[in-house]
Design a binder for these strands. Structure first.
Lengths: 237, 237
DNA sequence: GTTTGGGTGATACTGAGTGTCACACATCGA
DNA sequence: TCGATGTGTGACACTCAGTATCACCCAAAC
């Protein structure tokens, strides 16, 4: 399996895109620089666009796993942490993510594709939210699930774009605040305030615990079930 | 100017897409059936994809006009009615909109493009919302403007898709309800409830007046300025 | 040693999109 | 009436993305 070959092609493509632009770069130029044939390129990537975008499969699997570890009582934190997995992916990519951002901003075809790709994540959030909201028994479950998913993805993207543009040095803090803002406006079963019980046993840093509690408290039903809370999958950040 | 020629090409394209599918239809087949040359086709549409999508320019202008007729006190109704212009456009298209929906559902490239096109509208909402929210003086103006725009577009799309799938016979009622749901969860300046004064002078049908008042009341600051309210542009539905 | 299968290369082909030149025709002013 | 100008169209050649097919190499398995 030429995972090495694949990387060589991707490197050559990114370099040429930076040098001459996306449209002005032909696949022939890419394969020539990478020292492979056109056949190899299209077998590996399928299209010229796909060189730019990362594999989504494993990330989607991780998101699904985190969402499925939540329940109707803890869905806010599940969604927030699942969205955090996406942000973590981009931050890990570092320079590659920045280059891709420059390209998607300047080439309409790539921009369209990038936008469409976020809908894959939105779909995961929507489907899980639908189940949780149905269980909680509010009205207009489909609409609210759709709104919740769209809001989470949008809030994530706002923070991500600020980081991509170099407008923030503390993306995680902004991300947590954004998630709080999302869930504050989104309240499936208003109760008009009430007592809150938080039971936390954890070896996470105090700031981390505080951040998670804030997300959980953003809704109106901030009951925390200890067993399901901080013992679940963590972001690993 | 061959607006007639343009229509002939579009008709031929839609017919062939229905008969053989989008990918299996070549531009040569389209121009042959329409009785024109390839040159004419690409001059009129630019690409094979563009035959399917309508002109957005005039609709965007109408949306902008409606948004600019609103102000910080009446922004909810301005946004809701502006979004209603989009829905009205689709309902007017009728069969064409349904055919396009079938195509965009089955062809990934068209689906991506459709998704990306909605972002144009979202941008209009976002920019105007940013101004209004800044005037109202809440925190995180950028984030909230983005969330509001995304929510409006999402809610609109939920109703639109239900109509496209034939799942509703009363899209306008569902649309009004969806807008109410959006603004209920979106409250730029919570006041904890208060007295409300509604002054309405209008010759609209009572149901119509009621619907608009409901949208306006969805927020927490439902002050209605009569002069700016029902004397502004109407949906014409 | 032969077979089997994954990764690769070479080649030819289809079809979208671009660029250029030529032609028809309608309008307008001298 | 004539020529100039502009607009819509056709014809043609070209580039390049993406597909299909066949051949080849090489390593592991039998």
């Amino acid at each position: 399996m030429g995972s090495d070959t694949r990387q060589r092609m991707a490197d050559a493509a990114f370099a040429l895109f930076e040098e001459h632009g996306y449209d002005a770069t032909t696949v022939d130029q890419i394969v020539e620089r990478a020292g492979v044939s056109r056949s190899t390129f299209f077998r590996a990537f399928g299209s010229k666009e796909e060189v730019i975008f990362p594999r989504h499969d494993d990330l989607q699997a991780k998101i699904t796993a985190r969402l499925e570890s939540g329940n109707a009582q803890t869905f806010r934190l599940a969604i927030a942490e699942a969205a955090g997995l996406v942000l973590a992916q981009y931050l890990d990519e570092g320079q590659v993510a920045l280059t891709r951002y420059r390209l998607t901003r300047s080439v309409p075809a790539l921009r369209d594709r990038e936008i469409a790709s976020t809908l894959g994540y939105q779909r995961l959030f929507r489907e899980h939210a639908r189940g949780w909201l149905a269980e909680l028994g509010g009205p207009d479950v489909d609409l609210h699930a759709e709104l919740l998913a769209a809001s989470v993805v949008t809030a994530h993207n706002v923070v991500l774009r600020r980081w991509l543009r170099g407008e923030t040095a503390a993306p995680w803090r902004e991300f947590d605040d954004a998630m709080v803002a999302v869930f504050r406006g989104f309240d499936p079963a208003p109760t008009g305030g009430g007592s809150t019980v938080v039971v936390v046993g954890s070896d996470l840093p105090p700031d981390e615990v505080a951040a998670r509690v804030r997300v959980a408290l953003a809704g109106s039903d901030p009951t925390l079930a200890p067993a399901d809370r901080l013992d679940g999958p963590t972001l690993g950040r």
